[in-house]
Structure formats: C-alpha cells, structure tokens
Simulated scan of single mutants.
Amino acid sequence: MKLLMFTVGSSQPKFGAFVQEKIIDLNEIARLAKLSLPPSIQESLKSSSGLSDAEKVIPYAVANWNQLPENAIWKEDQIEWLPIVGSPEKIVCVGLNYKHHIMEMKREMPSTPVLFAKMATTLNGHRQDVPYIDLSNSLDYEAEMAVIIGKKGKNIKKRECLGVCSWVFML
C-alpha cells in the first residue's frame, strides 16, 4: 500500500493512496463508502486501528472505479506532494550509517551510532525542491527511511525491534 499526503491547488491537505497508477483521495472515497477514516497518515497512526482503516477504503475504490467523482481521483502531475507526517513529535536521525559513504568522505567507521535531531520544518514532500542557501558548491543526497515507533521502550533487543514499530516508510 503506497500512501501519501498531497494538495491540489489551494486545497486542504489530502490523505491519498496510489491505486491503478492514479492517486485517490482516501477521505473522499471513505465518505462515499460510509466508512470512517482519520484525515491524515499522522492521525491514522495515532488511532487504535492504525492504517487498517485506509486499507478498507481501497477495495471500495477499485470496485467502484468508474463511478468515483472527479474530486476523488488525481493524476500525479495534478498534485503537490506533502511530507508523509506533517508535524512529528521527534525526528531522530542516524548519521554515518553507510560504509561506502563513510569511506568516500575519508572518515573512520563510528563505534557507536551517530545520532542527531532534525526539526519538523526541514521536512519536504516527495519531488519537491530542496531549498538551500548558496554557502556550498554541492548538496549531498540521501535516501530516507522513517520508522514510526508506536510503543514506549528502552533497551529493546534487536530481535524485538520490529514489534515496537507501527510502520516503516521510505521517503
């Protein structure tokens, strides 16, 4: 299931999913199907049913594809991507975690994880421009993965770590 947050023109943020190479507005389709759905990925992750409510909307969309209104289906070039989670409580990042990149930078392998924080204002939507000031001749590129931790924990064993994660997103 590929989920996203997006806007169309000056619309309010929309909770969407990729279905049949189009983007559907999950909340609009949930309304048509008389299903309950939180307004965003972030709110869905906080709900007791998590993202399973979004999973229930997609079969309705597929079964009723030709009857869906125009404001429920979008082409990718009609939308503006938003960050997956708009205002997370914390963003903890791990740096120096790719051996090839560490060697490329001529740095030593760290003996412990290198952690740093990012501010929520640095989040960006997929395919959106990355703003920067002209203090550098180049930007470094990264692949981003977000792990949404859904349970409190401390000293969690490696074999148990996926049990505390609600969802993992590739950004």
Rank of each mutant, 00 (worst) to 15 (best):
I84P: 03
S138M: 14
F15E: 06
V114H: 07
L35A: 03
K151D: 02
K151T: 04
S136E: 14
V8T: 15
V164E: 09
L115Y: 12
Y141M: 11
K46T: 01
E160H: 07
A146C: 09
I148Q: 04
K157G: 13
L96E: 13
E43V: 09
E142N: 09
S49W: 00
M119K: 14
S52C: 06
S48T: 00
P113Y: 13
L4C: 11
R31C: 04
V57G: 11
N155H: 13
K154T: 14
E108T: 11
E80R: 13
T122W: 03
M105P: 10
P39Y: 01
Q42A: 12
K34S: 15
A117N: 08
R31Q: 13
D25C: 14
M5K: 01
I156A: 11
L82N: 12
A63W: 13
N155P: 02
K56T: 09
L115S: 04
N155K: 14
E144R: 12
L51Q: 07
M103G: 01
K90Y: 03
A146Q: 09
L3A: 01
C161E: 11
A143I: 08
I149P: 13
A143Y: 08
L4S: 02
I41N: 10
I149A: 05
S10W: 03
L96S: 14
L96R: 15
K2F: 13
M170P: 01
G50A: 02
I148H: 02
P69S: 05
A146G: 07
I102S: 08
K90I: 06
A30R: 10
K2S: 11
S52H: 01
W81H: 15
K56M: 09
Q128G: 14
S166F: 04
A146W: 10
T7V: 15
K106E: 14
L37R: 00
N71I: 06
V8Y: 14
G86F: 08
A120W: 04
P38N: 03
A17N: 02
G153R: 08
R127S: 11
W167P: 00
P59G: 02
P69V: 03
